[in-house]
């Protein structure tokens, strides 16, 4: 039967990182005092027990908040270069009169109709779509060394940290738990629609990325960037016909692009020069 390539090639920025302990949590489950990750569907996998093959299930979780972390890093980067860009807040002050908008930023989306800033172009706002999309493969914790999984999963250490707020005579009065993960992981940014200067800005921000999830001041959520790649990825979803129905088979081809990283960093520097001249 005819094989059809369905999806156009996309440009992916893949970032490999390491975290000793990180807590990008979703919230607590009802009737529980523990904050959890966003739980996804359980996945089946096979492993070898001697000569015998066994099937087991594992829980998978989503790493939240990567896009927010990248955005805040980009904001910091632009601010350090003297660019006035969009802040995440849409209000200047709160109801008590406290200032929400720091100096060197403008309200989110206020530049849309006049002189659109680079952050608004890339990340968008309420009624303008973002150029990029961030995604990380689900994480799981599998102890079997011989495990074979059909889906794309990232194996990390996942556990719960029990903490105490108040104690009396050695016994806890108030306690709570927080799930954390630790280990090497990767995430991907789809930059197909980005221009070179925008891509350069994202690359420079990612090289300085050091924060993910809550509790940064207490020592949690520190990230070390190990490696990043710019990939050209083409996905083909082939409906293989079999009688009345068909099975969708996915094949992925990837090519690493080295030169484009350097050219995009150059164009980002040129963009900075031009904007400094204008100011």
């Amino acid at each position: 039967m005819k094989v059809i390539e369905l999806i156009n090639p996309s440009k992916i920025l893949r970032v490999y990182c390491y975290t000793p302990i990180s807590k990008p949590l979703n919230g607590s489950i009802p009737r529980s005092n523990t904050s959890h990750f966003l739980r996804l569907c359980p996945v089946e996998y096979t492993y070898k027990n001697g000569k015998e093959e066994k099937i087991a299930k594992t829980e998978t979780y989503l790493i939240k908040g990567i896009r927010g972390a990248v955005r805040h890093q980009v904001m910091k980067l632009c601010h350090s270069h003297g660019l006035e860009v969009c802040h995440t807040s849409d209000k200047e002050t709160d109801k008590h009169g406290n200032q929400l908008l720091p100096k060197g930023f403008h309200l989110i989306g206020s530049c849309k109709n006049t002189d659109e800033c680079i952050i608004h172009q890339v990340f968008g706002s309420k009624r303008s779509t973002s150029l990029i999309s961030v995604y990380a493969d689900p994480i799981t914790s599998i102890n079997h060394a011989t495990a074979r999984i059909s889906q794309n999963l990232q194996n990390v250490q996942i556990a719960t940290e029990h903490r105490m707020v108040q104690s009396y005579d050695g016994n806890s009065i108030q306690d709570f738990g927080e799930r954390y993960f630790s280990g090497e992981f990767y995430f991907e940014i789809d930059v197909t629609q980005c221009e070179k200067s925008q891509l350069g800005m994202l690359i420079e921000a990612i090289m300085n990325l050091h924060k993910l999830g809550g509790g940064f001041n207490s020592g949690y959520g520190h990230i070390r960037i190990q490696k990043f790649q710019l990939l050209y990825r083409s996905i083909a979803r082939n409906p293989e016909w079999d009688g009345d129905g068909f099975i969708v088979k996915e094949t992925v081809k990837e090519k690493v692009r080295k030169k484009e990283v350097l050219t995009s960093l150059k164009s980002w520097k040129e963009y900075l020069k031009e904007s400094s001249k204008c100011n």
């Binding site: 973002s130 990380a136 129905g245």
Partner: peptide, 26 residues
Amino acid sequence: LLRIKSIGRYSSEGLGKIQWIKGELH
């Protein structure tokens, strides 16, 4: 349909990601 990668709100944050499995013609 098979061109679709993700749908819905916050798809730029990785939500609503689709994996197609199989099809039938009745």
